[in-house]
Lab assay of single mutants.
Amino acid sequence: TEEYTYTDKEKADRAAKEWANRGYTVTVTQDGPTYRVRVG
Rank of each mutant, 00 (worst) to 15 (best):
K11L: 14
R14K: 13
T25N: 10
A16N: 02
V28S: 03
D8H: 06
R38D: 04
K9H: 07
T25R: 10
V26Y: 02
Y35M: 03
Q30P: 05
Y4H: 05
V37M: 05
T34G: 06
R14E: 13
P33V: 09
T5K: 06
Y4A: 04
T27Y: 09
D8W: 04
E10Y: 10
E18I: 12
N21Q: 13
Y6S: 02
Y6V: 02
Q30W: 07
T27C: 13
Q30I: 10
R38S: 12
W19L: 06
K9E: 05
V37G: 00
T1G: 12
R22V: 04
A15T: 06
G23R: 02
A20P: 00
Y4W: 09
T27H: 09
E2A: 14
Y35S: 02
G40H: 14
A20R: 14
T5R: 08
R14L: 12
T5N: 07
Y4V: 04
P33L: 12
T34E: 07
E10L: 09
T29M: 10
E3V: 13
T27Q: 08
V26N: 00
E18R: 10
R22A: 11
E10Q: 10
R36P: 00
A16I: 06
G23Q: 02
E3T: 12
G23M: 03
T5W: 13
A20Y: 09
V28W: 04
W19V: 01
G32K: 01
V39S: 02
E18W: 15
R22I: 05
Y24H: 05
A20I: 14
Y6P: 00
D8N: 11
R22P: 01
K9Y: 10
T34P: 12
R36F: 10
R14G: 07
V28H: 02
T1Y: 15
V28M: 08
R38K: 10
W19H: 03
V37W: 01
Q30A: 08
E18F: 15
D8A: 06
N21I: 11
R38N: 09
E2L: 15
K9R: 12
A12L: 03
E3L: 09
A16P: 00
T34R: 09
T1S: 11
R38P: 00
T25F: 12
R36Q: 06
R22H: 07
Y6C: 02
V26T: 05
E18S: 08
A20L: 13
Y6H: 03
R22T: 04
D31V: 13
A16E: 04
W19M: 05
T1N: 09
Y6D: 01
K9V: 06
Y6I: 02
T7H: 11
A12E: 00
E10D: 12
G23F: 03
R38Q: 11
Y35T: 04
T5Q: 08
G23S: 02
R36D: 01
T29H: 09
E10A: 12
R14M: 11
Y4M: 05
R22Y: 06
V28G: 01
D13E: 14
T5S: 08
E10I: 10
G32V: 02
T7I: 10
D13F: 15
K11Q: 14
E3H: 06
E18G: 06
T1Q: 11
K11G: 09
E2K: 15
G40W: 15
E2R: 15
A12S: 03
